[in-house]
Amino acid sequence: MDQQLHFITLATPNLETARRFYHEGLGWDALLDVDDEIIFYQVAPGLLLGLFEAGKFAEDQGVTAAPGISGITLSHNVASPQEVYRTVGAMAAAGANILKQPQQGKFGGIFHAHVKDPNGVVWEIAHNPGWRITETGDVVLG
């Protein structure tokens, strides 16, 4: 199997709340938006984030209820600590809850914050001076 991911799909308890947060609040444009079903956002070259209505997510998997989101963060890396503050502020203004205010991290030399979107997805907004993101979206470590 190739070492690649093409979709990250999350069960979403309230698709309309997700739509308002990501589109209206953060200004993201959907690649595909199917009412009452799923929204796909292009988040990197070759990678989509799918927000799938929880009942239909469960039906698609053949289970009675979609599992909750646990033990996962989606990370967005930015160019400076100031940009961490700006991004967290924009997310909070769009309806997210700040779980951890911007601060120096305990691990890896990063400056970061944690924010929970209105459907419970936890985002880490981080600046790591030892990492960089290229114009093509590749992550360069060290």
Score class of each variant (00 low, 15 high):
Met1Ala: 14
Asp2Leu: 15
Gln3His: 13
Gln3Asn: 15
Ile8Glu: 05
Ala11Phe: 00
Ala11Asn: 08
Ala11Gly: 10
Ala11Arg: 00
Pro13Leu: 12
Asn14Pro: 09
Asn14Trp: 00
Leu15Ala: 02
Phe21Pro: 08
Tyr22Asp: 02
Tyr22Met: 01
Gly27Gln: 00
Asp29Tyr: 10
Leu31Pro: 03
Leu31Ile: 04
Asp33Leu: 05
Asp35Asn: 12
Asp35Lys: 13
Asp36Trp: 03
Asp36Ile: 04
Glu37Gly: 11
Glu37Gln: 14
Ile39Asn: 01
Phe40Ile: 07
Gln42Thr: 14
Gln42His: 13
Val43Cys: 15
Ala44Trp: 09
Gly50Leu: 07
Leu51Lys: 02
Leu51Cys: 08
Phe52Lys: 03
Phe52Ser: 04
Ala54Pro: 01
Ala54Gly: 03
Gly55Asn: 11
Gly55Val: 08
Lys56Cys: 06
Lys56Pro: 09
Lys56Phe: 04
Phe57Cys: 12
Phe57Met: 11
Ala58Trp: 12
Asp60Pro: 02
Gln61Leu: 14
Gln61Phe: 13
Thr64Gln: 11
Ala65Met: 12
Ala66Lys: 10
Ala66Gly: 08
Gly68Ala: 13
Gly68Tyr: 09
Ile69His: 09
Ser70Leu: 10
Gly71Asn: 14
Ala79Pro: 06
Ala79Arg: 12
Ala79Val: 12
Ala79Cys: 05
Ser80Val: 01
Ser80Ala: 02
Gln82Ser: 07
Gln82Arg: 06
Arg86Ser: 12
Thr87Leu: 14
Val88Cys: 12
Val88Ser: 07
Val88Ile: 08
Val88His: 07
Ala90Ile: 02
Met91Val: 04
Ala92Lys: 14
Ala94Ser: 10
Ala96Asn: 08
Asn97Val: 13
Ile98Val: 15
Leu99Lys: 15
Lys100Gly: 00
Gln101Leu: 03
Pro102Lys: 04
Pro102Ser: 06
Pro102Cys: 01
Pro102Met: 02
Pro102Ile: 07
Gln103Thr: 13
Gly105Ile: 04
Lys106Ile: 08
Phe107Arg: 10
Phe107Val: 10
Phe107Gln: 09
Phe107Trp: 13
Phe107Cys: 00
Phe107Ala: 09
Ile110Phe: 10
Ile110Ala: 13
Ile110Glu: 14
Ile110Tyr: 06
Phe111Thr: 02
Phe111Lys: 06
Ala113Pro: 05
Val115Asp: 04
Val115Cys: 03
Val115Gly: 03
Lys116Asp: 01
Lys116Cys: 06
Asp117Gly: 03
Asn119Ile: 11
Asn119Trp: 05
Gly120Lys: 07
Val121Asn: 11
Val121Phe: 10
Ile125Gln: 03
Ala126Gly: 08
His127Ser: 03
His127Trp: 07
Asn128Ile: 13
Pro129Ala: 01
Ile133Gln: 00
Glu135Asn: 11
Gly137Thr: 06
Gly137Gln: 02
Asp138Gly: 10
Asp138Gln: 13
Val139Ala: 15
Leu141Tyr: 07
Gly142Gln: 11
